[in-house]
Structures are given as structure tokens and as C-alpha cells.
Amino acid sequence: MDAFLFRVKAAQRDLIERCGGIMRVVDKSGYSKSEVGRWNNGAEPDLMSVGAIAVLERDCGQALVTAVLAETNGRRLTDPDETRKAEVNVLTSHAELMRQTAELANAIAIAISDGQVTPSEATTVDRVAGGLERAASDLRASLAVIKARGGAAAGLKVVGE
């Protein structure tokens, strides 16, 4: 498989996870457990149908596979859900981004500790990187809201005064 297919497969795994796992995706999509399992398995070449992608992305509210397809053609999707962006707090988003960064550093350190990165280790690191991407996206969304509002209080308090 080439890098594009690995990105699509990672997006499919994330989509299945965000939709509640394999069995819930079976119920939502009408595809068999075996087929959904192959979509979820990075070693299998099976890709979701456009119909399944549309149903599942609508279900979880995130265009994960569609975003990868757009990026392949030099495009980016925009998130029309301003309400979600407004609810994201910059401090919480920053904390989650830092947590995900540490988790990624740990996963990579483990993967390279023996001087060889296996496909299984690459899959593990890729899953963690997906979490980091989500955290960065949430932080960027909260910052966009702050810019649109012309600024915001940071919500920090000095303890002990």
C-alpha cells in the first residue's frame, strides 16, 4: 500500500472508533462485521464505500475520511459548526494538546527504542498521532473563536491572593 492508502485506512479506523466501534458501524452502515473489520484493519486493503463514509461521517459529525481525500487533492475542509468551536475552551484544548503530545513522544520512543519500527508500532503511533491532530484542531477552533470575538479572558486566576 502507498502512503495515501495508509492515511485513508487510519481515517477509517478513527471514523469507526468515533462511531462507537465495529458493531455499531455494522448496525449503522448495513455492512457485515467481517467487512467493517477489514475497513478497521490497517493490513487489509478494503476501503469504505462512499455511501458508508457519508452515513458514518454524518453520524459522528466529523468528515475524517473526506478530509483525507480533500488533502490528497490539495484542498482542506472547513468546519461549519461554529457552535462546537465556541464551546471549545482554549485552556482545556491546550491541556489536551500537551497530553497528546506527551503520549505521541512516548509512543515514538517505544517504537524506535530497538532501532526498528514495525508495522504494528507504526499503527500504534499513527493512532496516537490522530489524537494529536484532533487536539490541535480543537485548539485552533478555540483560537479562531477568540479572534472572531476580538479577544477573550484567559480565565486564569492567581492562587494565594
Rank of each mutant, 00 (worst) to 15 (best):
D2N: 09
D2R: 09
F6E: 01
R7T: 01
R7Y: 02
V8M: 03
K9L: 07
K9N: 01
K9E: 01
A10G: 07
A11P: 03
A11W: 00
I16V: 12
E17S: 13
G20D: 07
G21L: 09
V25F: 07
V26E: 13
D27C: 13
K28M: 15
K28H: 05
S29C: 11
G30L: 07
K33H: 13
S34D: 15
S34C: 10
E35P: 02
G37F: 12
W39D: 00
W39V: 07
N40V: 11
N40A: 15
N41E: 04
N41L: 03
G42S: 14
A43W: 08
E44V: 05
E44F: 09
P45L: 11
D46T: 14
S49N: 13
A52F: 05
A54N: 04
L56D: 01
E57N: 01
E57A: 00
D59R: 08
D59A: 14
C60N: 06
L64W: 02
V65K: 01
T66W: 00
T66E: 05
L69R: 00
A70F: 00
T72F: 08
T72I: 02
T72R: 10
N73K: 15
N73H: 12
G74T: 11
R75H: 14
L77M: 10
T78D: 07
P80R: 09
R84N: 08
K85H: 09
K85N: 09
A86W: 11
N89H: 13
N89Q: 11
V90D: 08
T92M: 10
S93D: 06
H94G: 12
A95F: 06
E96C: 04
E96Y: 03
R99S: 06
E103C: 11
N106Q: 13
A107G: 04
I110R: 15
I110F: 13
A111V: 04
S113E: 12
G115E: 08
Q116A: 06
V117C: 12
P119Q: 09
A122T: 10
A122L: 14
T124L: 04
D126W: 07
R127T: 05
R127Y: 02
V128C: 06
A129R: 03
A129F: 08
A129C: 03
G130K: 02
G131P: 10
L132M: 07
E133T: 04
E133W: 03
R134T: 11
